[in-house]
Nucleic acid binder design. Sequence first.
DNA 1: GCCGTTTTCGGCCCGACTGTTTTCAGTCG
Length: 574
Amino acid sequence: MDNREMAQVFEKIADLLAIKGESVYRINAYRRAAGALNELGQDVEDLWREGKLRQIPGVGEAIAGKIDELLRTGKLEFYEKLTRQVPETLLEVLRVEDVGPKRAAHFWKELGITTVDELEAAARAGKLRELPGMGERSEARILESIAALRRRQTERVPIGRAWPVAESFLERLRAVPGVTAAEAAGSLRRWRETVGDLDLIAGSNDPPPAIEAFLATPGIRRVRSRGETKVSVEMEDGLRVQLWIHPPERFGSALQYATGSKAHNVRLRELALDRGLSLSEHGFRREDGSEILCKEEEAVYAELGLPWIPPELREDQGEIRTALAGRLPRLVRMGDLKGEFHAHSDWTDGACSLREMAEGACRAGLQYLAITDHSRSLGVANGLTIERLQEQRRAVEALQEELGTRLRLLHGAEVEILADGSLDYPDEILAELDLVIAALHSSLRQTQARVTERLLAAIHNPHVDMIAHPTGRMISSREGANLDMEVVLKAAAEAGVVLEINAHPERLDLSDVHARRAIALGCLLAINSDAHRPEHLAYRRYGVGVARRAWAPAERVINTWDFDRVMDWLQSRG
DNA sequence: GCCGTTTTCGGCCCGACTGTTTTCAGTCG
């Protein structure tokens, strides 16, 4: 049982306890433990073997005991007992918007409803409106929510789709007279790999025109709620977008609050309470009731004796302690990236010529670009035979002649790690390349032992400089290989092989959690677009988001290095 | 159920919006 599966068990326990009407604090304890497991960065089973479960924040005696039982037996008697008391299918009912634990319990106990289908039938039959606290409108609202739930393909949307939608709203809002600022908040601003919905904050003393502009944005299916200062809509594809409008003098407090994460904000509130202040989206309130307004987010942190903390770190993963100690890293920024190490051309499955890719890199302000087309075994991508690879090298050299010093080209390849762990080109061919990226594209479903062994073999090949998208996952569609990541990261650190953060928004592989662990273990990282056309170079911003969430200092990301330093490094590898 | 430079018990964030209510409960973030 991996961390994610175990976290899901604890999330379910929390929901079932909520339906039972248990103490919210007990419920939250399970949610916190689930969150901690998701953010752990290493296999919980390793900590378990070392007897270190209690070191996980939010895991005490009781939950440690449950983790132990789950790992020993694969089952949990406590969970099974709960599901005998509360039907497990009610968890599905909770996913309906506007139905929380209280209503779910109510519907179940009064009407025997245990599934979404039964809830829908009851609503259509006009039975919900008869319950106390319910009425016709609540019933209609629940029917709408059920329809919206069925339209939504997935609960969370990849960040690569979310940002462009957010930007279309923000652009309109910023053009409204009286709007002093408009920013994305929530998990989008923290650059999580997927977001549940979009949270936007605007500063204005005159909300109505801002709300009008917001509602005039194309693609809205329906308005979910609309108040004086807050409005919420659902897009055609089910994505939810909400806007809060605050007076400009409170914009910083509002943005800080809405950016979260919840756990981060709870910690900040504790710090505020220590200072006799209470903190909310409206700002600080002193004990005498007077207010401290924060126009800028920096002021919120300054009031608590903290430097501004980058949103990507706000996950309650030690950022506040580190900030108090003045030890926050100088995180890598988009503007730090000087080169791209992973790009394709029409020699394989790219859409554009070498020259078009090079021009794109120049427009993106890059100093250097590595052409790394696919190797011969990747037939679907028209992988390069040795002859074509060598022909391509001459073409790259010719293009370099033309480009002069505008852009430095590297000739490399994205070389298949074959099912037996060997590489797709012989060593003497690899030795001719400026840069060798090894990658898994096939046989991802092998056992953990086998697929890990393949990757280790690649890492130990002296010609391999970098590993592309280590797990091969696709966020919306495919689980990655079941790697023993701890072993892989340690081997990469030891061999000096760079691990890619593939910036394609469907990959983001390494993930934030694994990248952070990689940094802790001493690995070097690269942020690569894996561009198949020049516009894909813009994906790098998503990779930067992942790297920042991993606490990556610029120094550890080799794209921040000058071309000369990159060449020195490659030569030192032989 | 967890946690501790306010330690082993007593805290654990808080406001907007909606709908059903004449003052509040539920949900959400």
